[in-house]
């Protein structure tokens, strides 16, 4: 894919909806397309956070491996979601596993490239971080609701 069409399709992703066209083009400089088959890991807990993923299609499970219980899913993500805000936060390590549940297509944003751009252009950095924060906030809200265990039966 040439850079212009990559920027065009990147602009379609909900993560970019509040970025200017120039900012999306700037961001596209770090982006490439990637595809994962069902069962393939996008990231592994503890390994280096080297990319941020914007999911375009498919389904990705966020998991943690618990000895004796196997891989426990805590969330599943799909089109429009992002994976990997650890890319901006030292020590740049993944906290959880991300595994494709079905054939999954993502934009893969290189971590070093991103960090460089965020440093170089603070107004871009602000817009980008705000998007990241919005996604993080929504994810946290959902996690809190999940923690409430609202469907649990209270026996009398």
């Amino acid at each position: 894919m040439n850079p212009e069409s990559l920027a065009r399709s990147l602009a379609q992703h909900p993560f970019c909806k509040d970025l200017t066209q120039a900012q999306v083009e700037f961001l596209a400089g770090c982006a490439k397309n990637a595809r994962y088959d069902a069962g393939e890991y996008l990231v592994r807990e503890g390994s280096l956070a080297d990319a941020l993923f914007l999911v375009r299609s498919g389904s990705v499970a966020i998991e943690s491996h618990i000895p004796g219980r196997g891989s426990v899913k805590v969330d599943t993500l799909g089109p429009g979601d992002i994976i990997g805000w650890s890319v901006l936060l030292p020590p740049f390590r993944w906290h959880l596993d991300a595994r494709a549940l079905a054939a999954t297509v993502v934009f893969c944003l290189d971590a070093n490239c991103l960090r460089g751009k965020v440093q170089a252009d603070h107004s871009f950095g602000y817009a980008f971080t705000l998007q990241l924060l919005a996604a993080a906030s929504q994810r946290l809200t959902h996690a809190r609701l999940q923690q409430l265990d609202v469907y649990k039966a209270e026996l009398r």
Partner: peptide, 19 residues
């Protein structure tokens, strides 16, 4: 809210599906 190893569907709250 809580999957098991055989669960192949979504995990997470229903509000997360709406988008």
């Amino acid at each position: 809210d809580r999957g098991d190893p055989d669960w192949r569907g979504h995990t997470g709250v229903v509000t997360g599906l709406l988008r």
